[in-house]
């Protein structure tokens, strides 16, 4: 049994044909060819598959795709924007991860970044700050310190207005 599911994906309307209970994670990676979203555990423990649905960070391995019908989905691929010169520019948090060494093997990185973006846009979603915002994201490489530095650097840059978070 498959059904048509229409949603906004990184700002563009997208219709996929899938089983209603297919994981959003698989639909993104296979049907939409967006492989930036990673699978770590497949059971809601690691956060590698984090995407943003209607402004909220969620684990895409736990979302049956029928539940995004009519929603706005953002994946890591949606963060970069087109600059005035026609070149793509990274989101300031992506730049911060590069600058601070927030990524090593990179498997956790897209999920970390999406969780961080949701937090930057809505700090009240995590009253406990960055540590709470990222508590659902595991990293086997960095020891977290540089990830925290990356997010804090991005926050500072946002405050100084160097770049507007979208």
């Amino acid at each position: 049994m498959t059904t048509n599911i229409t949603f906004q994906l990184n700002g563009r309307e997208k219709t996929v044909q899938a089983h209603p209970m297919a994981r959003l994670l698989d639909v993104l990676r296979q049907d939409c060819s967006l492989t930036g979203t990673k699978e770590g555990c497949g059971e809601g423990e690691c956060g590698a598959c984090t995407v943003i649905i209607d402004g909220r960070a969620v684990m895409s391995c736990m979302v049956p795709v029928c539940q995004v019908h009519g929603s706005k989905v953002e994946s890591i691929e949606g963060l970069e924007s087109m600059g005035a010169d026609g070149q793509t520019c990274l989101h300031l948090i992506q730049e911060a991860f590069i600058k601070c060494g927030g990524a090593q093997c990179g498997i956790c990185t897209p999920g970390m970044i999406m969780a961080a973006v949701a937090y930057l846009r809505q700090p009240e979603s995590a009253p406990g700050g960055v540590a709470e915002a990222l508590e659902g994201n595991l990293c086997r490489c960095t020891g977290y310190t540089r990830i925290f530095e990356s997010v804090k650097t991005a926050i500072d840059r946002m405050k100084t207005g160097a770049n507007q978070s979208r």
Partner: peptide, 9 residues
């Protein structure tokens, strides 16, 4: 309960 991503869902 879980992490924020779980709490959102």
């Amino acid at each position: 309960t879980g992490a924020i991503q779980i709490q959102n869902r």
